[in-house]
């Protein structure tokens, strides 16, 4: 705009109206640029087909105590473990004050079967997959940066900030669970 002023276009008589035109034009153009930016950003969000795959059904009838299975859900592994009674007792025995991310075992296990634990198998530190029945608490241990989880999947030691995530799930029958 300074260039306009310096080039003697004689419009100095009505600065208000002229400036209004320039500002309006600039503002309308800026709105357009903003509107164009949104599709370019939004295209990187999960697409319709990805969102449609957001749930998975699993048959858990065949998991014996002490066994676990892994299923894929939203591109991540989900651990489903039928814990032994000792593991459950060990988890319940921990005082909440000792936990960096306090949660009781009841809050984490499935409601009808206290031994069954369904968790997203992704370390809450930086996304590695923890190893089962390992670590100082005989729960899960993440080899990447040394996070130790107990038999309830709660963080006990190491850099991870939170317990292993519990996904949304619903039991369709006694032996079929839908995750997501």
């Amino acid at each position: 705009m300074s260039a306009t002023d310096s080039t003697a276009d004689g419009a100095g008589q009505e600065p208000t109206r002229r400036d209004f035109l320039y500002v309006t034009t600039g503002a309308v153009a800026a709105v357009g640029v903003g509107a164009v930016a949104w599709p370019l950003i939004h295209q990187m969000n999960p697409d319709a087909s990805t969102k449609a795959l957001a749930s998975v059904e699993v048959d858990i009838g065949a998991i014996e105590p002490g066994q676990s299975i892994r299923v894929m859900w939203r591109g991540k592994p989900v651990f489903i473990r039928n814990r032994t009674d000792e593991e459950v007792e060990a988890a319940k025995a921990v005082p909440l004050d000792d936990l960096p991310d306090p949660q009781t075992d009841e809050e984490r296990a499935t409601p009808d079967n206290g031994n069954l634990l369904i968790m997203v198998g992704v370390c809450t530190h930086l996304g590695c997959i923890p190893l089962g029945e390992a670590g100082e608490y005989n729960g899960w241990f993440c080899p990447c940066h040394g996070s130790h989880y107990d038999t309830s999947g709660r963080i006990r030691k190491g850099p991870a900030p939170a317990n292993l995530e519990i996904p949304e799930y619903t039991f369709l029958t006694d032996t079929t669970v839908r995750i997501g």
Binding site: T4, D9, G10, A11, R18, L21, Y22, T25
Partner: peptide, 9 residues
């Protein structure tokens, strides 16, 4: 109109 204003002189 902006262009015309600028070019008016």
């Amino acid at each position: 109109f902006t262009k015309r204003k600028i070019w008016s002189a």
